[in-house]
Write a protein that binds this DNA or RNA. Structure first.
Length: 137
DNA sequence: GCCAACGTTGGC
DNA sequence: GCCAACGTTGGC
């Protein structure tokens, strides 16, 4: 199983809204960046991802799971843009802020730090564990 | 609100 | 295939 991190601006799609979706999940539409899309194409059912609030909050607030594999993005005109769907699985008992991630030397290689604009990114298993620990899981 | 980083588009 | 222009993201 692989790990990922997805970003969302909470004033557009928040963790509360994601949780309210429950098992119905939410299609991660609107990604128009090849790197981010490629990461979604690589996702398998059951893969886990951190749910990160960008711009407002700037913290990892929860964990989602891949519920549907990549499929054409219904909001795109052509089928090269694909998206997966996510269901919420857990809250971060203690949200992990970007500042906290940046100030942990173990996490210095994370794309969240080095490629801050990438909206769908992989997370190394060790980094996943470390952040879970920081978040109280 | 500013601006740096960076991805995309389109002319040549 | 290069590169300038432009648009967007996202931290500060």
């Amino acid at each position: 199983m692989a790990y990922w991190l997805i970003k969302s601006e909470p004033n557009v799609w928040s963790w509360a809204q994601q949780k309210a979706r429950g098992q119905q999940g939410e299609l991660w539409t609107g990604v128009r960046n090849y790197s981010a899309r490629n990461n979604m194409l690589a996702m398998q059912l059951g893969d886990k991802a951190f749910f990160y609030h960008s711009n407002i909050g700037k913290e990892i607030v929860g964990i989602v799971e891949v519920a549907q594999l990549a499929q054409p993005d219904p909001t795109a005109e052509d089928t090269r843009w694909q998206c997966v769907s996510f269901v919420a699985v857990a809250d971060m008992p203690c949200p992990v802020s970007l500042t906290a991630v940046k100030s942990n030397p173990k996490l210095a290689c994370m794309p969240l730090v080095t490629h801050s604009r990438l909206s769908v990114q992989p997370v190394a298993p060790m980094d996943w564990e470390e952040i879970c620990k920081m978040g109280g899981l």
